[in-house]
Structures are given as C-alpha cells and as structure tokens.
Design a protein around this nucleic acid. Structure first.
Length: 466
RNA sequence: GACCCCAUCGUCUAGAGGCCUAGGACAUCAGCCUUUCACGCUGAAGACACGGGUUCGACUCCCGUUGGGGUCACCA
C-alpha cells in the first residue's frame, strides 16, 4: 500500500506554528515511506475563509520548504460530491432529515447539559415519518449513528482509544442550505484522495470517532489515524499569540532561518535517540510515527534561538548577505554599493559566529556599511577618553604605514606597539574598536581592519582624533 | 459538567522490568580560551507528580488520586 498523507488547513488565518508542525510531520512521513503528501484547503466555511489566508499558508509552506504532490484540492469545489454522499446515505436509510429549529436544538442542548448527558441531540426525527415535517422548514441531514456499543480507533500515536456510542449524537452531514459540514467533507475527501494516514493535531481526536462512524455508514475503509500532541505556551496553557502562536512569516521576520524552525519543530514531540541537529535528509530517513511523543510540548524560544544560531553559523556567507541586505539598507539609510556588499561578505565569517537571529546579524553588521563619521555608542565613547585618544594618535602613523594590510600582520603590529608602550593589549584594542566600529563588541579587531581596508580604517581612526 | 488524552531535570527529551549511581540538548551557574562580544572546551546544579498494587526486582505493567490539556455547533 502506498502511503498518502494530507495536510488540510482551513484558510481562516496564517499558517501558525502548530499547523507548520502538522504539515512537517505529514510531509516527512510521506517522504520517508516513499508515498505522496497532498495539500487540501478546507475552505468550506465561506464566511471565514479568505484568499489572503490561502496565500499566507501557501507562502508559509513554501518558506519551510514543504512541497506537495498532485494538485491542491479546494474543498469548497467538491460540495456537490459531498452532498451526493449524504443523499445516498439518506436513500439507504443510514441518514435522515431533521426539521428541528435552532431554538429546539438550544433547548435540547441545555437540557442535556443540565442532566449531565453527553448526547446533545435527542434524535427526535430519527425514526419519525417525514410526512410529519413542518411546512416551510428546510431540513438538515443527520447520520443515523449507532445508539449502542462503542467505537474504537487505533491511533498510531495515542494507541487504542474507545468511546461509548452513547456519547456521540447524530451529527449533521448536510446543512439546511444544502452545504456539507466539515465532518462529511473531510471523510469524503480523504476517501476520494485515497488518504491512508490522517496525521493531525490532538484536538481532532474526538472527531475521529464520529468520522469512523461515517466511514462505516459509507462502507469505506477507515484510514490510519495519528493524533499528534498540541504545542503549548511556556506556561503550559494553550499557545497564545504572545507565546509564539504566530504565523511562520512572523518567525521569518524575527530573523529565524527555515531550517532552524524545521529542526526545532521536528524535535518538539519527536526524537531520534540523542540527536539534536537533524538535517532534512536525515529527518526523512529517520522520521516515523512510533517516535512521536504523546504529551503536549511547551514552546521554548531559547532553544529555537540556539538552533537558529547554529544554522546561521553553518549558512553560506553569500546567502546571509542576501538575507540581511534589505534590512541593512533601510537601517543604514542608503543603497548598498558593490564595495559595501563585498565588505559584508568578507566580514561575514566573523559576524555570523556572534548572531542568534538574522536581525542580530544585520545589527552587528551595520558598522561595516555605515557612513563616516560613525555614530558611537555611549559605552564606546567612554573608551575614547583623552588618554585613549593619545594612544590612538601614537599608533595611527604606524598603522598607516603597515605593509601588508593583513589581519595577522596588523595584529603583530598592534601587539608590538602595546608592548613597547608597556600597555595591556586591551588598552589599545578597545579604543581602536570603538573608533572602527562605534561599539564595544565586534568581531576580531584585526579581521575588521582587514575587511574595512586601510583607507576606511585610517579615516575612522582619524575621525576620533580631531 | 460529561467524555477522552497526557504526566522523567525550569524546557525539549532518552529510557520498551534488572544495562539507571536515570543519559543527551537548551537555559542557568563556575572555570578555561580571549583585545571585546561570541564561538568552543571543561565542570556543577537540576527530574522519574503522589498513593496503592503486580513482580525476586519497577521510571518502565495495572488501579486510584492529583495536576495539565482537548472535545462537546447547521465552525473547521
């Protein structure tokens, strides 16, 4: 049997972090088993679905590097097929028309709640003669679900889960306006798409029972279910926006790399021994449902940051320059010239070692492309007191004549100077750093000088001597 | 409230009855490296929710308690 999975978001908002992980697991499972991963947009709720949300979801998946097989299915376009299935159930006597008004339903619900009963709808139209139907009322179609016994699902993550059929009432299949409900659409689409494994959030676990009943009524085989635990906020409560329930594009904007987010999401609720840093290829090779944990996991920005730092260090210099190009231009206030871009690339090795996010990276790279005279932070300004300026003034002429202008030679020169003046290296290096970068923290000073070049370096030092 | 699910360091997790003196990672703390900040390295502190069973032996199996979560729509 060829594995077919699907990711089925409803386009009512962006692709949030939980959805991203569900998508990742579906994709990984399909790729691992050499099957296909499908994408289905569940846009049956016309009021809440928007084209913008569809775009955002597609863009988010693309950014994460998750691609899908065959064409994307839009659920709303299949409404006729869904309705036909409900009608056929009706003809077979496995479903029935229900003429209850919203008020009646509300009463029933209230009564059931008060009595502590789980079954909200009392089935009053279940065996009633349609001839008794009130005039002028459009009925809904409900499934004639089993009254007794129990329904069991074999969940690949949660194990065997059973619920008494008394807990489940006769769900609505087709609304009064003739449109299909989510329960119906999902089952019909998963069947028609030949989905073999339904991998989705744990919040759908109870839906699996109702859907199983529907599959049976339709005489279709049920797919395998895998309900993966939800992601919680740092406080253990449901993930809120404040906690990170943001769209993946928000993570992109915060300066996270897609490979870092993928790695983080993968390890959240899934593990492979002690492995922490896992490439896409390794993930495809190793991923399976049996290693998915059963408990909800808390979202931890600190670990994501650590992973992001790792992937930034591993990233190609040119790619990083491209990624910070835009933000850097708007921060610097001028269009970056080729020479400045070259400088960034040359300095990237030292910069990326120190960044946790691309935003950090852009910020720390700003001094390379800043126009003179540099703005100097308060802390750095303190390093440039009269004494320090005097030292720089003494050092400057020697630096100006340095040959060749290379990191190692520059370091040797400055060290020799400090020794001759009987100064600790820091006494010379820190003011120099302040003059060259406007800051107290930067990559190796001598690397900075080499990247900046003789002319720019001497000019920046000169700016502080006037 | 009813039903269902879950439960190992602060966090993510390893652990499929003896391999556990409970391992790894992040975070924290200390030290080393060092011109700064990082990176890196070394080390420290830190957990089996509780109570009963089962067993020669339970983190591992069963039951209960507690705690957390999910679902209860003509939303998806």
């Amino acid at each position: 049997m060829t594995v077919v999975t699907r990711f089925a978001p409803s386009p009512t908002g962006f692709l949030h972090i939980g959805g991203a992980r569900t998508a990742l697991f579906n994709w990984l499972f399909a790729r691992h088993h050499g099957g296909s991963a499908r994408l289905r947009i569940e846009d049956t709720d016309r009021k809440r679905s928007t084209p913008e949300a569809i775009e955002a979801i597609l863009a988010g998946l693309d950014w994460l590097g998750l691609d899908w097989d065959d064409e994307v299915v839009y659920q709303a376009e299949r409404a006729e097929r869904h309705a036909a299935c409900a009608k056929s159930l009706l003809e077979q006597g496995r479903a029935y028309y229900c003429y209850c008004s919203p008020e009646e339903l509300a009463e029933m619900r209230q009564a059931a709640r008060a009595a502590g009963r789980a079954r909200l709808y009392d089935g009053r139209w279940r065996d009633r003669d349609p001839a008794e139907a009130p005039a002028g009322v459009d009925p809904v179609i409900r499934l004639k679900a089993p009254l007794e016994g129990e329904t069991t699902i074999e969940d690949l993550v949660q194990g065997e889960v059973t619920v008494a059929n008394q807990q489940l009432d006769d769900m609505v299949l087709l609304r009064a306006d003739g449109t299909p409900t989510y329960m119906l659409s999902v089952v019909v689409d998963d069947h028609d798409m030949a989905v073999t494994h339904v991998i989705r959030g744990d919040d759908h676990l109870t839906n699996a029972f109702r859907q199983t009943q529907l599959y049976r009524a339709l005489d279709w085989a049920t797919p395998a279910f895998a309900h993966i635990p939800l992601i919680h906020g740092p406080d253990g409560a449901k993930l809120s926006k404040r906690h990170g329930a943001l769209g993946v594009e928000a993570y992109r904007d915060m300066g996270y790399l897609p490979e870092a987010l993928n790695n983080y999401l993968l390890r959240l609720g899934w593990s492979h021994g002690d492995e922490e840093i896992i490439s896409r290829d390794q993930a495809v090779q190793w991923f399976d449902l049996d290693a998915v944990g059963r408990g909800a996991a808390r979202f931890d920005f600190a670990k994501l940051e650590n992973l992001n730092g790792h992937y930034i260090r591993e990233a190609d210099d040119e790619r990083l320059v491209a990624l910070i190009h835009g933000p850097l231009e708007s921060a610097a206030g001028h269009t970056l010239e080729p020479a400045e871009l070259a400088r960034l690339k040359a300095g990237m090795a030292g910069l990326k070692m120190r960044a946790k996010t691309l935003n950090d990276l852009a910020e720390s790279a700003a001094f390379y492309v800043a126009k003179r005279p540099l703005s100097v932070t308060d802390k750095a300004a303190k390093l440039l007191d009269d004494e320090a300026r005097a030292r720089l003034a003494a050092l400057a002429p020697r630096l100006a004549g340095a040959e060749p202008w290379r990191e190692a030679d520059l370091e040797a020169l400055v060290r020799a100077f400090a020794e001759a003046e009987e100064l600790k290296l820091g006494k010379v290096a820190q003011p120099l750093r302040a003059a060259l970068t406007g800051s107290t923290a930067s990559p190796s000073l001598f690397e900075v000088m080499e990247v900046l070049g003789r002319e720019e370096s001497m000019a920046r030092i000169g700016d502080q001597l006037v």
